[in-house]
Computed example of a mutant assay.
Amino acid sequence: MSRTTKLATIASASAAAALALAVTATPALAWTAGNFTATLNGTMTIDAGVSASCTSSTLKGTIASDGTLSITSATVDGCGVTVTPKALPWSGKLDNGVATINGFAMDAIGCTYGGNLTGGFTGTDLPVTATFANQTVNRTSGLFCPASATITAKYDFAAS
């Protein structure tokens, strides 16, 4: 076999292997776009010097095929005090095991706290569970309020 024929054979085999790999490669993660409801799994703890445990919370919105979230509705109940979500919509994303909620804001007892939450999630499409542990949010308004609060919550996201 001539040198040219050997090189052509090797190049052809390499091209065939590359094509086979490209055809069998796993496609990029894509979420099923649409509406979602995220329900509190367990309790939400809000600690601003005094800890409050909330027993109910629901987030609603949309998820895009790239995992981008738009949270247009939020409720929190069973905290012992009135907690009111503020500044909706919030944005966020579910991406490579990282869950984010940006623009998060809540008011309780005349103190408003806000910021971004970052946690982790399991799963590759809805339903997934996202956990936000010990996330610090800063005071954005209120007199005689602690400078920050810590949020811990776990949400089950499902298509709705």
Rank of each mutant, 00 (worst) to 15 (best):
N116L: 04
A147W: 05
S70M: 07
V76P: 01
N41A: 13
A25V: 13
D47Q: 06
K60V: 14
C54V: 01
T75S: 11
T75G: 08
T37D: 07
Q135F: 05
G114A: 05
T9R: 13
P127T: 12
K60W: 08
I63D: 00
A74C: 14
T26I: 10
T72S: 07
A108F: 10
A52N: 13
T129G: 02
S141L: 07
A20L: 11
C145E: 05
A18P: 12
M44D: 03
V23Q: 14
L19V: 15
T136H: 02
A15P: 11
S53V: 08
L21W: 12
L29F: 12
L69V: 09
N35L: 15
A8M: 15
G34E: 00
F157H: 01
M1C: 11
V128H: 00
A33L: 07
T75P: 04
T37Y: 05
G67E: 02
T58S: 09
K154F: 12
A33C: 09
A30D: 14
T37R: 07
G61N: 02
A149E: 02
A17L: 15
I63A: 02
W90F: 08
P27Y: 07
G97W: 06
I109E: 12
T140G: 03
L69K: 04
G110T: 12
A159L: 14
A38E: 00
K93A: 07
L21P: 06
V81S: 09
S14Y: 12
F121L: 03
A22E: 13
G114T: 04
A52W: 15
L126F: 04
A17I: 14
I101T: 03
D95L: 02
N134T: 10
A130Q: 00
D77E: 11
T32F: 06
S53H: 15
L94S: 00
G114P: 05
F157W: 01
A158I: 06
A87S: 12
D125H: 06
D47L: 03
I10T: 09
A133I: 14
F132R: 00
A13N: 11
Y113V: 00
C54T: 03
D77L: 13
T26F: 11
A15I: 13
A105W: 01
C79P: 04
L19C: 10
P27W: 09
T37K: 15
S70P: 06
I151G: 00
